[in-house]
C-alpha cells in the first residue's frame, strides 16, 4: 500500500483522493504517509540528550564552597535538547515531544481539546501492555467535576467515546453550560478499564442564560470577605512553571 501511496502522492493527489482510489480510509493513508516521511527524516542516532555543557566553567563543581554554589549559576544546561521534529509542508512541527492535554472553551456547549503524547509515553504504554501503540483503542473521557474534587476521585458524571486513529484534537460537544469539565485521553484496556494517560486542567463552560438560582453568590461573598485564600471557582490562566515538580 505504501508504494501506491507514494506514487499517488507524487502525482499530486490529496490524502482524500488517495484514500478513495485505494478504497482505504484517510486516516490510514495519512498514517502510512507520515510514517514513511518520518522514516526518511529519522536520524541514525536516536539519542536525544544534548551535548553536555558541563565544561563551560559556568557550573560550580561539587567541591565548590557554599557561597560559590549560587554564583555563576546563570545557565541551567538543557538536559533534553529541543528535539528535531517532523515538519509539514509549511515547515511547522506536526507533533511536539510533549505530554499535554489542554481544553479551551468554544461555547457554552462546546470545548476544544488538543493533546500531544511523547515518544516516551508511547514507549511506556507499549512496554507495559506488550502491544503496539496503533493497536490501542484510544478514547476521550469527559468528566463533569462541577463542585467536586476530582483529585480525590469524585466526579458527577462521565462519558467516554472512541477516537479515530491519527487524531490529536477534538471539539467536544454537546456539553452543558455552567459546568466544570476535565477531559482525559486514554486507552480502553481489553479488561474494561479506561486508563487515563493525559488529563486536562479543569475548564468551565460559560452560562448561556441569566442565573436564576446561581451557585456563585456565596463563593463570591466568601472571596470578597477574605474568608478564603483562593477563589473557589475555576480560573484558567494559571502560572505555568517550567520546573514544576522539582523541589
Amino acid at each position: 500500500m505504501l508504494e501506491k501511496i507514494i506514487k499517488l502522492k507524487e502525482q499530486g493527489l490529496t490524502t482524500k483522493q488517495i484514500a478513495e482510489k485505494l478504497e482505504s480510509t484517510e486516516g490510514k493513508v495519512k498514517y502510512a504517509w507520515s510514517k514513511y516521511r518520518k522514516s526518511l527524516s529519522e536520524p541514525t542516532n536516536k539519542k536525544t540528550t544534548a551535548p553536555k555543557t558541563k565544561n563551560t566553567g559556568a557550573k560550580p563543581t561539587k567541591k565548590a564552597t557554599p557561597s560559590m554554589k549560587t554564583s555563576g549559576n546563570d545557565i541551567v544546561p538543557a538536559v533534553i535538547a529541543i528535539p528535531s521534529l517532523e515538519r509539514d509542508a509549511f515547515g511547522m512541527a506536526t507533533h511536539y515531544e510533549d505530554d499535554i492535554m489542554h481544553a479551551i472553551v468554544q461555547s457554552p456547549t462546546a470545548l476544544y481539546v488538543y493533546w500531544e503524547l511523547s515518544e516516551l509515553s508511547r514507549k511506556m504504554l507499549e512496554t507495559h501492555y506488550h502491544a503496539s501503540f496503533d493497536s490501542f483503542r484510544k478514547e476521550l473521557r469527559i468528566i463533569d467535576v462541577t463542585l467536586v474534587d476530582y483529585e480525590q476521585g469524585e466526579a458527577n458524571r462521565t462519558y467516554q467515546f472512541e477516537l479515530p486513529e491519527m487524531t490529536n484534537s477534538w471539539f467536544v460537544r454537546p456539553l452543558s453550560p455552567n459546568t466544570t469539565y476535565i477531559i482525559e485521553w486514554g486507552i480502553q484496556t481489553i479488561d474494561g478499564d479506561f486508563l487515563p494517560v493525559l488529563r486536562s486542567k479543569p475548564v468551565e463552560t460559560p452560562r448561556d442564560e441569566p442565573a436564576v438560582e446561581g451557585r456563585f453568590a456565596e463563593v463570591v461573598a466568601r472571596w470578597q470577605n477574605g474568608e478564603v485564600d483562593q477563589p473557589e471557582w475555576v480560573e484558567v490562566l494559571r502560572p505555568y512553571s517550567y520546573f514544576d515538580r522539582i523541589r
Partner: peptide, 27 residues
Amino acid sequence: GLPLVQTYNQLAALNLAVLRQAQALYK
C-alpha cells in the same frame, strides 16, 4: 482521579505517574 478496577491497569497508572515525575526531574 477515578480509580481503576484491574490491578494491571493500576500498575500502568502508577508507571505513568513515575514517568511524569522522572520527565520533570530530567529537565
